[in-house]
Computed example of a mutant assay.
Amino acid sequence: MAVSTSTTTLPLLFLHRSTASPNPTALSFASPLRASPLRSRASASASAAPPAETLADDLPSDTPPVGEGSGIPMPSSIGEDGEELAPKQKIRIKLRSYWVPLIEDSCKQIIEAAKTTNAKTMGPVPLPTKKRIYCVLNSPHVHKDSRFHFEIRTHQRLIDIMYPTAQTIDSLMQLQLPAGVDVEVKL
């Protein structure tokens, strides 16, 4: 017994907002899909329904226009809020060290110095550890398969200081950090 299957491609249904009414609840079907022969029952019931413009007129007038009270920010308000949220000036400190306890102590010193001057700190954020592996031959002539592998791990931390003052910068300049910590400061 052979079963034949026929495949038909159905058009995708797309909803779009009606251009006549700014209300987001008034939706209508896209124009090429209104008279689709595949949806005879749906098109018959859609033709009996009133147009979308009359539905939008029946709604109460206290619904806000799109963007005002709907939670969707308008493009003009994004720039204003972005300036308030982003700090005008920040200090980014990047620390590098081969030894983890040394870099952790340095981070604590920097954060304490910033907090005593009422500056907001973010971090320390641990960045990925960089591993440099060196391969050295054990014997230069006969035993080429015998090799030593040495690696150096560089641990990194990132600290951001928001809204620094002159006192914050002075307290950071007076810190005595260990010699095994590389400090990179960006304003």
Rank of each mutant, 00 (worst) to 15 (best):
M1W: 04
M1C: 03
V3C: 06
S4V: 02
T5H: 06
S6I: 02
S6T: 00
P11C: 02
L12G: 07
L15Q: 01
L15V: 04
R17L: 03
R17T: 02
T19K: 01
T19L: 01
A20Q: 06
P24Q: 07
P24I: 08
T25P: 00
A26C: 09
A26T: 08
L27Y: 05
F29R: 03
A30T: 12
S31Q: 07
L33D: 02
A35W: 00
A35D: 03
L38H: 10
R39A: 07
S40N: 02
S40C: 01
A42Q: 03
S45G: 07
A46G: 03
S47N: 10
A48H: 13
A48R: 15
A48M: 13
P50S: 13
A52D: 01
E53D: 09
T54A: 14
P60M: 13
P60L: 13
S61Q: 15
D62L: 08
T63F: 14
P65W: 12
E68H: 10
G69L: 06
G71C: 07
P73A: 14
M74Y: 09
P75T: 04
P75C: 01
S76P: 00
S76H: 11
S77A: 13
G79K: 05
E83W: 02
L85S: 12
L85V: 15
A86F: 05
K88I: 04
Q89D: 07
K90I: 05
K90D: 09
I91L: 14
R92S: 12
I93C: 05
S97K: 13
S97H: 08
Y98A: 10
P101D: 08
P101Y: 06
L102C: 03
L102Q: 03
S106H: 04
K108N: 11
I111L: 10
A113M: 04
K115N: 15
K115P: 06
K115C: 10
T116N: 10
T116H: 12
T117Y: 08
K120N: 14
T121D: 03
T121G: 11
G123C: 03
P126I: 01
P128C: 04
P128R: 11
K130I: 07
R132N: 14
R132D: 13
I133R: 10
Y134C: 05
Y134M: 02
N138A: 14
H141N: 15
H143N: 05
H143A: 11
D145G: 15
S146D: 07
R147F: 06
F148Q: 05
I152Q: 12
R153V: 02
R153L: 09
Q156C: 12
R157T: 11
I159L: 11
M162C: 13
M162L: 15
P164Y: 12
P164M: 09
T165Q: 13
T165H: 13
Q167F: 11
Q167C: 09
T168F: 09
I169K: 15
D170A: 15
D170P: 04
S171A: 15
Q176G: 08
L177T: 02
L177C: 11
L177V: 01
P178A: 06
G180R: 03
V181E: 06
D182P: 00
V183G: 10
V183S: 09
K186R: 14
L187A: 10
